[in-house]
Design a protein around this nucleic acid. Structure first.
Lengths: 343, 343
DNA sequence: GTGAAAGCGCTAACAT
DNA sequence: ATGTTAGCGCTTTCAC
């Protein structure tokens, strides 16, 4: 381990024969330095391998040029969010630091957010909790933007995919294929997106004049395990649904696995449609019909909204809704005419 | 946005009628404070919602109790690592902050690591690069532990799964099933794990007296896309391999998708075995036979090694190799006796 | 255009 | 057991 300490601003300044402030201004691209000096300072800093200490930068009241993000990272959905946010952040000369909620976390991550606030200029929150937890936050010293998490009275700007419309379109797709016995696997209904998808499903059914059977609404939570349980339950009901709309792709995978376990084929026996269009959706067999949500773009929008807030601009709107889109693949097909649904 | 600034140590100290240092000692569980005062200080801090500013803490030479981790987060493998590391870190009263390498990143993340070092007491690196990049690091002011990334001359302690043994066992499994025409899809060979798996494959083949055909070694990089390409290529070779060993599960998924696309069935026409045992492996169809790597435990080991280093202990060993294990599921089966492999 | 002083919130080191 | 001093690396004033 070579332990030569990294150079500090003071050292760079001394080498360049200027004051710390001048060096600081030069390195931060701020006015008030002659072109000559600026170039020399930059050169020296580069040669010395100078890297600004962002902790000190932030502590002294400046910008750290870091965006914090808090999310349950081990899902394809948040992975895509991170990729989108990451590229947007870099394009703006910032860096993204992440905090991952663990699976079982139920507690409000209050101190985590304040931790992030100590380092970052803004934070993006993707929380699988009721909104209350967020508003409980000790203080919002820096801007916060949420994804997939709008509240009725938005305290923070939010980016969401159009879950309601997407769910309607998904349901409509199934109906157009001739299905009438359609089941729904809910998401984590502490999240508005899950409630919206359910509403979308129900409204579409109603508008088609189709009944919404209580047993056909199976509880899920956006995770595969619950999707599997829901699928098992639904497979056992008589008459069995001929189509299932799962609130997201991950739970659709669970549903499909459960269906298979009892010998049902997808889509021949049961059509399945998901939501999100995670990368995996197109890779599995059968390729999943789903509603595409522009996840990477959601990450980017969150960053851009945050960046605007950091610079002091008001957020253009407090709720940005991005459109969703039906992607038809192989897991849905027209209802079979024989009395399949029955038994 | 309520903007009451969070209280500082100074305020807590004043409220408790003690000096800052006493408050600091009390809050950090350090000796030198009477039980009475300590309790009062803790109480006040709690009531005021005091949260230590870790940036300041670190800057002043203390511990921030943060572990940094840098990895390409959007893979199931690293997700598991993060979960393991996250739980270990919490158990020790630390927090984990992550930096995600983006897909296309080729450049050495030098300044990122130094960024992390400014905040954290130690960093875990999972780098999809040659080791050189890491050693290039400006300075190692704080301990660094790597996962899946040992070098020949380890500068940093490393945690790895036993890729060589695992690959031998995987290959042996295929051989025991009667396969002779066995193909191998490589991993990202800039990583030692990928090279080890290839060696394990080759040694097992050799020891069984089986030939290693050049065309049966298809280049991959641990990602699904490359797995798909490899699968397509292998499917077209005559005689076609009757079994394929993919260097990790993700590329095995790609292989399977490619096989399916040309009408081949898994495992009936071609057996496929992966490596890692990501959660998805058991969920897809057919459930994937694979070599289990204790990913969460690898994350935990990395944290514990790091923690020891932080406390000043020497790392017990500089290379911790965790055992791997064969998990037989449905994607492999005995070679069919009819002249299948041929055409 | 440049610099000096002060301080962000905290903790080591050295008092007492 | 407790307090005082100094300083981490930087940026904000406010000078010139």
């Amino acid at each position: 381990m070579n332990d030569k300490q990294p150079p500090t601003l003071a050292e760079i300044a001394k080498m360049a024969g200027v004051s710390q402030m001048t060096a600081s201004r030069a390195l931060n691209n701020k006015p008030g330095v002659s072109r000559e000096k600026r170039e020399e300072i930059l050169l020296i800093a580069d040669e010395m391998g100078y890297v600004v200490n962002r902790a000190a930068q932030k502590l002294s009241g400046g910008r750290s040029r870091i965006i914090g993000m808090i999310a349950q990272l081990h899902t394809p959905f948040t992975s895509e969010l991170v990729m989108g946010a990451g590229s947007a952040v870099r394009a703006a000369g910032y860096e993204l630091l992440l905090y991952s909620l663990l699976g079982g976390d139920r507690r409000p991550p209050t101190d985590i957010v304040s931790l992030l606030q100590q380092f970052a200029d803004g934070v993006i929150a993707v929380l699988p909790y009721e909104f209350d937890y967020l508003t409980t936050l000790a203080s919002a010293r820096i801007p916060v933007v949420t994804i997939d998490h709008q509240s009725e009275v938005p305290d923070y700007p939010s980016i969401i995919g159009d879950s309601y419309q997407g769910a309607r379109v998904a349901t409509r797709h199934l109906i157009d294929l001739g299905h009438r016995d359609i089941a729904f696997v809910t998401g984590n209904e502490r999240l508005a997106s899950a409630r919206d998808r359910r509403r979308g499903f129900e409204d579409a059914m109603r508008q088609a004049g189709l009944p919404i059977r209580r047993e056909y609404i199976a509880e899920g939570d956006y995770m595969q395990k619950a999707g599997f349980r829901a699928g098992s339950r639904l497979a056992a009901i008589k008459p069995r649904p001929t189509a299932i709309f799962a609130a997201n792709d991950i739970s659709a995978l669970g549903v499909i696995a459960a269906l298979r376990e009892v010998g049902l084929r997808v889509p021949d026996d049961v059509s399945v449609i998901g939501f999100d269009d995670i990368p995996l959706a197109s890779q599995i067999h059968p390729a999943l019909t789903t509603i595409r949500q522009p996840m990477q773009q959601m990450g980017r929008s969150a960053v851009n909204t945050l960046l605007a807030l950091i610079v002091g601009l008001e957020a253009p709107t407090s709720l940005i809704t991005l459109p969703t889109e039906l992607v038809i693949r192989d897991s849905t097909m027209p209802r079979r005419q024989e009395g399949t649904g029955g038994d």
